[in-house]
Amino acid sequence: MRTVLVTGSAGFIGYHLSRLLLDEGFAVVGYDGMTDYYDVRLKEQRHQRLLQHQHFRAEIGMLEDFEQLRELALDTRPEIIVHLAAQAGVRYSFENPRAYVDANLVGSFNVLEVARELGVGHLLMASTSSVYGANEAMPFTELDKCDTPLSLYAASKKANEAMAHSYAHLWGLPTTMFRFFTVYGPWGRPDMAFFKFTKEVLEDTPIDVYNDGDMYRDFTFVTDLVRGIRLLLDTPPSLPEGRGETSPHDSISPAAPYRVVNIGNGEKVRLLDFIEAIERACGRKAVRNYLPMQKGDVQATWADTTLLRELTGYAPQTRVPEGIEQFVAWYREYYGV
């Protein structure tokens, strides 16, 4: 039985990934700081559900606590590390930028050090579509330059990519960075738009629609996302002997066993269409409060998922109406609405 260390296991994506890995016969060691960025009870309930499985172990600790993280890793000896834990959110980075330095820079450095010491067979780390920043050509591909981040959150994730590449080069550490595109679904984060929109529609309170609704996102259903991560576990990058050996879409580094992979739905959806899907699932219309673009935000995201398909044979397929129906059904049951 292979053991996977998942940081952020009580988080939205970490919970779904851990559950999938357990269902597929892995042992999962979860590490989570249970920070109060949003309702800790939601995180605790995710962990409680995972703890019902005999092959799940949970430890509460901060990424910044290197000795605790190292001790756990040395005790459990994971073959694979999936690093999901981070300080998330674009807007919050304006209010509390230090949290991003502590969790995303110092914390990720600690994960890299642990992976190096253990010599894990594969390190997978979460990045974000936000690293594409001010890029305008779409769909975004992994070979695009990402030198124009528009928030400290995006900058911290771009820094993670650079840090991970250096470790992959120096220590021969097989590393895959995956860039998420607007994830949504059951057990989601209350700070995210799909969650807030659903809450506000059901409560008949106004929803804030930025840039007058002229925005587009590549909405990715969470179970599709974690399936992509699961398949990438079995595809550790290796240093190519020559560029001619690789696909023209491959982001494999010429200097390290390191690769970046987009995980998105592969289509851009208009924000107003996404809101309408929530309205249909809720059975009522939203009261819309149209506002200008927020600082640090981007007008559109859209993933080229060619590389994910080439590496795994998989492409996310859940359409927005179907995914939103599943989320709203979960929301109604969880909150008794």
Rank of each mutant, 00 (worst) to 15 (best):
V114C: 12
R91T: 08
V106N: 10
R98G: 10
Y92L: 12
P97K: 03
G107R: 07
F94I: 06
R91A: 14
S108N: 11
L105M: 15
L105T: 09
S93R: 09
G107D: 07
R116P: 00
G107T: 07
E95K: 14
V90P: 03
V90D: 08
D102W: 00
E113L: 07
E113F: 02
V114F: 03
A88C: 06
N96P: 03
E113M: 07
A115E: 05
E95P: 05
A88G: 13
P97Q: 08
A103G: 11
Q87I: 00
N110L: 06
G107H: 06
Y92I: 12
Q87C: 08
V111Y: 00
Y100R: 10
V101R: 03
Y92F: 03
F109P: 02
Y92K: 11
A88Y: 08
L112N: 13
R116N: 00
R98S: 12
S93V: 01
Q87S: 15
N110V: 11
E95I: 06
R91W: 01
R91P: 05
D102G: 03
G89A: 09
Y100S: 13
A115Y: 05
F109A: 11
N96A: 13
F109L: 09
S108Y: 02
A99T: 01
E113I: 01
G89H: 10
R98E: 13
N96W: 03
A103L: 02
S93C: 07
S108A: 15
A115I: 00
G107Y: 01
G89Q: 08
V111E: 00
A103T: 15
V106S: 14
L105H: 05
L118W: 08
E95Y: 11
A103R: 07
Q87V: 00
A88H: 13
A103F: 02
S108W: 02
V106G: 11
D102F: 01
V90R: 13
L118K: 12
L112R: 09
R91C: 06
Q87Y: 01
R98K: 09
N96G: 05
E95S: 10
R116M: 00
R98N: 14
A115C: 09
N104E: 03
V101C: 14
N110K: 08
D102N: 14
N96R: 13
E95F: 00
Y92M: 12
P97C: 01
A115R: 11
L112A: 02
V114N: 10
N104S: 10
R91G: 13
D102M: 06
R116H: 03
P97F: 07
P97G: 04
S93Q: 09
V101P: 04
A88D: 11
V101L: 15
Y100F: 13
L105P: 02
N96F: 02
F109C: 15
E113R: 14
A115V: 00
L112C: 04
A99I: 00
E117N: 15
Q87A: 15
A115G: 12
G107C: 04
R91Y: 05
L112T: 06
V111G: 03
Y100E: 05
A103S: 15
V114P: 14
Q87L: 07
N104P: 01
V114I: 07
L118G: 04
A115T: 08
L118C: 06
N104Y: 02
N110F: 04
A99H: 09
A99R: 05
F94K: 15
V114G: 10
N104T: 14
R116W: 01
V114T: 09
Q87T: 12
A115W: 01
P97N: 10
R98A: 06
V111P: 05
A115L: 04
A88M: 06
V101F: 05
L118R: 14
R98W: 02
